[in-house]
């Protein structure tokens, strides 16, 4: 019985987390290049929800909430933002030297319940974003099968002009987050990289992580690297060669703030690993 409930919850939270039509899809923000030189370099990004990494085979990732934090912790505006049929594109001009964090993050609650006629409901619905007022208005205080989850979702990537810096790597202590131990723009195929996961600012043990190198369309085996974070929330990654990688992580426990009883976190990151 418990298993069934968990399964339902994870399926639904996947729906919420992704705002997607199916949980098999992957949402990402992919920079064309992550390590840049020159005085004021620019980098272009694609955002999409897709099956293959990094092709545009499903729907664009909407730019709502897209934020760029510069090496000085100031917000930088995305340029030439455009959403097409399959992807959203934008550019970033790097006026300051150092590391930039590009992300979309949100936290909220997710509720499911049944009405008197036994019909299932949930909030927020697919494509909706959580809003506290709406939540209070729509979700009943008491209902059959009422289950409330505390959810968080973060999509991000990093790019660096010149020397990598750490300012933009600080975690916000909200939701599921990754804190790089190895700098995310200093990754090499022959070196092991270490990352640490946090849930609401505390080390997250048991985060399930899947890592895939780009170009899945052109090989039969997706060659996924599957890892689980240790008690310090850490993972060590040995890369499958150079290239851009899609990292996806999910977390779940019962340490939730009332009225929620379940806490979930979804996270995705695009990294570039250079040849040695």
């Amino acid at each position: 019985m418990k298993t069934v409930t968990l399964l339902k919850t994870s399926l639904l939270s996947a729906l919420v987390l992704g705002s997607l039509s199916a949980n098999a899809h992957r949402a990402w923000i992919a920079p064309d290049v992550t390590v840049l030189s020159g005085s004021t370099p620019a980098v272009t990004f694609d955002m999409a929800v897709s099956n293959s990494i990094f092709n545009f085979d499903h729907v664009p990732m909407r730019a709502n909430g897209l934020t760029i934090i510069g090496p000085d912790n100031n917000t930088v505006t995305a340029e030439n933002l455009h959403t097409g049929k399959f992807r959203t594109v934008f550019d970033l001009t790097m006026e300051k030297e150092g590391t930039y964090r590009v992300f979309i993050a949100n936290q909220g609650l997710f509720a499911r319940w049944e009405d008197a006629e036994g019909k299932g409901h949930y909030y927020p619905k697919r494509g909706e974003t959580y809003d506290q007022k709406e939540f209070n208005k729509i979700v009943p205080k008491k209902a059959k099968g009422l289950e409330i989850s505390q959810t968080s979702r973060r999509l991000e990537t990093f790019v660096t002009s010149g020397e990598p810096t750490d300012n933009a790597l600080e975690i916000t202590k909200k939701g599921l987050e990754l804190k790089p131990i190895t700098h995310p723009n200093d990754l090499y195929a022959g070196e092991t990289a270490k990352f640490q996961f946090f849930i609401d600012g505390k080390p997250a043990k048991g985060v399930e992580v899947s890592i895939v190198r780009e170009g899945t369309r052109y090989r039969n085996n997706p060659e996924e690297i599957n890892l689980v974070s240790d008690k310090k929330g850490e993972i060590s990654v040995n890369w499958n060669g150079a290239g851009r990688y899609f990292l996806e992580a999910s977390y779940k426990d019962n340490v939730a703030k009332k009225p929620a009883t379940v806490r979930t976190g979804g996270y995705s990151l695009v990294l570039e690993v250079l040849a040695d």
């Binding site: 390590v35 840049l36 030189s37 020159g38 005085s39 370099p41 250079l274 040849a275």
Partner: peptide, 11 residues
């Protein structure tokens, strides 16, 4: 100084 954009290729 556009030539500096490619310095990173000597990775």
């Amino acid at each position: 100084n556009e030539g500096e954009d490619w310095l990173k290729d000597m990775r």
